[in-house]
Design a protein around this nucleic acid. Sequence first.
DNA 1: CATAATTCTGAATACGTATGTGAATAACTG
DNA 2: CAGTTATTCACATACGTATTCAGAATTATG
Lengths: 343, 343
Amino acid sequence: MPPHKPTSFDIAQLAGVSQPTVSRALRGSPSVSEQTRKRIEAIAQQLNYKVDKNASSLRTQRSNTLALLFFEDPTPDETGINPFFLSMLASITRTAARRNHDLLISFQQLSANWHVDYEDSRKADGIILLGYGDYELYQPKLEQLIQQGTHFVRWGLVGGQDEMGTTIGCDNMDGGRSAAEHLIALGRKDIAFLGDASDHYPEFRDRYLGARNAIFAAGLNISGDLQVDAFNTEQSGFDAAQQLINSGVRFDAIFAASDLIGIGAIRAIEAAGLTIPGDIAVIGFDDIPAASLAHPPLTTVQQDYRAAGEVLVDTLLKLIEGKSAESYTLPAKLVVRKSCGAH
Amino acid sequence: MPPHKPTSFDIAQLAGVSQPTVSRALRGSPSVSEQTRKRIEAIAQQLNYKVDKNASSLRTQRSNTLALLFFEDPTPDETGINPFFLSMLASITRTAARRNHDLLISFQQLSANWHVDYEDSRKADGIILLGYGDYELYQPKLEQLIQQGTHFVRWGLVGGQDEMGTTIGCDNMDGGRSAAEHLIALGRKDIAFLGDASDHYPEFRDRYLGARNAIFAAGLNISGDLQVDAFNTEQSGFDAAQQLINSGVRFDAIFAASDLIGIGAIRAIEAAGLTIPGDIAVIGFDDIPAASLAHPPLTTVQQDYRAAGEVLVDTLLKLIEGKSAESYTLPAKLVVRKSCGAH
DNA sequence: CATAATTCTGAATACGTATGTGAATAACTG
DNA sequence: CAGTTATTCACATACGTATTCAGAATTATG
């Protein structure tokens, strides 16, 4: 047995065939006889032979690897990975594995040059983009990806003028609508929104618009005072809620653009001596694991990260294979817990 | 400009040099003149040239990639990724990136054949192993890795007969000790332990032993009735706590082998109509993000996942470079919150 | 029994990079 | 100016696999 890592040549020699035959046999080519194949497979097993993926990828120009890029702005601190995306990570990894693909992951600043690397270096066949961030920064990078012909899918807002590239996302507007309608049905009159509502964060904006439409339809207060900017961290949610409370604006419910913001808001509300849901009802968005642990447990709009991961991977694989693939919207589902005061 | 992906030959032609010179120039070899290098770099930039990592790895036999393997037993359900390891993931990814390495990740069943693949296929230069699981299953796979000469580091219990391969871990026994001493100092007399204390889960066992030693030293109750098996899920913690309560054994404190178990225990205690920390103090282990969100916020023994990730990566890189690398123990630190009744 | 059709295998080669070796030029020395 | 050294580059080749093409072995057919 050779001392070095066995190659297809070693197997060929032992089996008394040529290297190409070994390659064909192990890939299940029909043009090698059952008998030789068995023999070759046995020897391969015995030598603990593994195909060298570098050589294989070089030859086939396919790495069978996907790259998953998280990006985070403006707060790339160690703790700050969006828990929702972490949940999705599991689903993406598992789906990729099921499709016989490996997964490279990387955390990036939105402002860095992540958009030029992975597929060009042939380490991955395509890219999955995950992350919130200022769309102003995001857009030009997406444009370059498209122009380069890079295969990619992203999680984001489907439809509308902001859609660039194949996009998978949940129905943010409908989610916002059902959150607001739920609060309205519970008798809340002045519903505040915590989260950036500008075009810089299209998903937050849509959640806001969905809620606003429902509130307007119910003939309730849609004053601009009831919207406070916040980005996707607990601290920002805390600050925004505090600001709202201090502003003296009357409100009896908060719809937070994300669970993190909502959890921060809960802390601020309690710090101000108010009760949840007694004085103020709170609804979040995402259904991150922490939502059910919050006190009180946070009512929220659930994004199905499991389905999301599958759709992202499968869509990307279609693109890589040159098939056409459509953007896709997943439904958003209200999950009622204690923080809204239902029951 | 060629329509295909540019290669070093394209650059060579445009620069009027040979392909090897391009390779040397881009890798910063001293044997290519400053002037030619600049010229080549400019052309490379202009063509948006990227080194083909497959070809490069094939030639150098180094992929500059690490593989991160999570394994999970016995409950590999979608939700069940240990949050502590998820936190570590971020640190590992970032450290790997800082060291110019890519990171492949994969979730595996402990019972599957994960131990034979990654490094052999040359997709990764080494492996990081993360996960709890029955050591009975784990051990033989580790043996095979060692025998194969695979480069790997694992998170686990350092020291003792259970250590196999280069291991990074926190000081479980000392963590258990400080948790118990803290409860003792607060006047608790009957401290229960929730978690498997057998050799199948050496880390839990050490946490138990550390606590037990402290309790014994204080002359308090170390009856076996006060230890209930539980594995690392919230549900298991809930069940174990319920069992303890129903057993009628007197206890005024719980030291949970992990935060997940602790959070489950909190739920069970409240469901039984008891108060925390009034009737029962609770301390966990890990300091996962959910610990501070629990109600009451969970006092716990913190494992420094940030340092852990760095040490894991750096140790693995040393091994890959053929340097010697030692196993390493990180300190465990008590984090006092509300669930233990301090202050 | 000769020829055609079929099945299986081997020789040659390409994928794109990195590096050992040696040749050419330039830069010095005495 | 011959001879030496330093610099800079090109030639040839290896990494391990997958595929094209053609040829050998086998079987079927008239």
